[in-house]
Simulated scan of single mutants.
Amino acid sequence: MNPTDLVAGVDEAGRGPLAGPVAVAAVILDPTRPIAGLGDSKALSEARREALAPLVREYALAWHLEWVHPAEIDRINILQATLAGMSRALRALRPAPRSALVDGNRLPRDLPCPAQALVKGDAREPAIMAASILAKVARDEHMRALDQRFPGYGFALHKGYPTPEHLEALRRLGPCAEHRRSFAPVRALLAPSLLD
């Protein structure tokens, strides 16, 4: 294989939730082993994503999943934490990518290779689609596990997103260790009342 073909796709899952980590995936697809049915993970059914994820892991030349946990998100903010996760995911790939296509409109500053930001890349570029699927499937699985550790919040259903059910549970139970303290709905429950 020509080393110039080592193009990594990078995407994340979980920037918007109030709880749990962001999952960042980087994938270098093998052009000799195409994977039928790749698409934007948000447009695929859960069953389809879960059927595709093991194929991506098996057929890709390289893949890596990086976790960005709530403490890091709270320390440096969600955008910077996501960009840091993207950089770490790319650095971990073996073989190392010669270039990268990153979903979105921002690039991390310290990437290990030349890169291009691609708006809606998860609907346009197969390597980003593959990364999107790996990140989403891994994060959903992680949130189902957190649902067992922190019962009552409904993490298995809403995956940490700010649904009415999650917000009600948050008000009733208070934040758990996996909640992002820097996100406004969580921060509001931690701040002392201004009315006292």
Rank of each mutant, 00 (worst) to 15 (best):
W63Q: 11
R48S: 10
I35D: 02
A115S: 12
R180F: 05
V119L: 14
R171L: 11
P151S: 11
L61C: 05
R91H: 12
D110V: 14
A19K: 01
P151K: 12
H69L: 14
T82Y: 08
R171P: 05
I78C: 09
K136Q: 04
V7Y: 00
R106D: 09
S99C: 13
F183R: 02
A131F: 10
S132C: 06
P162V: 11
G16W: 10
H142D: 05
L101F: 09
I128V: 07
M86T: 05
H69C: 10
A71I: 08
D110P: 04
E50I: 04
G16L: 07
K159S: 06
H69I: 06
K159W: 07
A184M: 11
P185M: 13
V10A: 03
A156T: 00
H166Q: 08
G85N: 13
Y153C: 04
P162D: 04
S193V: 09
P114K: 13
E58Y: 02
P114F: 03
M86I: 14
R181L: 04
K120C: 01
P112T: 08
L29I: 13
L167P: 04
A100I: 06
R98F: 07
L38I: 00
L44N: 01
E58H: 14
V56N: 04
L189Y: 03
T4Q: 14
C176H: 07
H179I: 00
S99W: 08
D30E: 10
V10F: 10
V137S: 08
E165S: 14
L44Q: 03
L173Q: 13
M1W: 09
A100F: 08
M1H: 11
G85T: 08
E168H: 12
R187Q: 15
L173R: 14
A117G: 09
R181G: 01
S87E: 15
V22T: 08
P70Y: 03
A131L: 12
I133W: 00
L170M: 13
P192V: 13
D40P: 04
F183E: 07
G160H: 02
E50D: 13
D122M: 14
V56A: 03
L107G: 06
P126F: 13
V27Y: 05
A100L: 14
A36C: 08
A184R: 15
D110N: 15
L44K: 01
D11L: 06
L194G: 07
I133S: 02
R106E: 11
G20H: 03
M86R: 01
L157H: 10
L90K: 00
A13Q: 03
A127E: 08
T4P: 00
P70H: 06
Y153R: 06
A130R: 07
H179C: 05
I35R: 01
E50H: 06
P34G: 01
R57C: 11
C113S: 12
E168G: 03
L107Y: 11
V7F: 09
P175D: 05
A19S: 10
F183Y: 02
T32K: 10
A8H: 01
L65D: 04
L79N: 13
E12R: 12
G14V: 06
A135Q: 01
P31I: 15
R98P: 04
L29K: 04
P70C: 09
W63E: 07
R144D: 13
P21L: 01
N77A: 12
G20I: 02
L189F: 11
V186Y: 00
R48A: 15
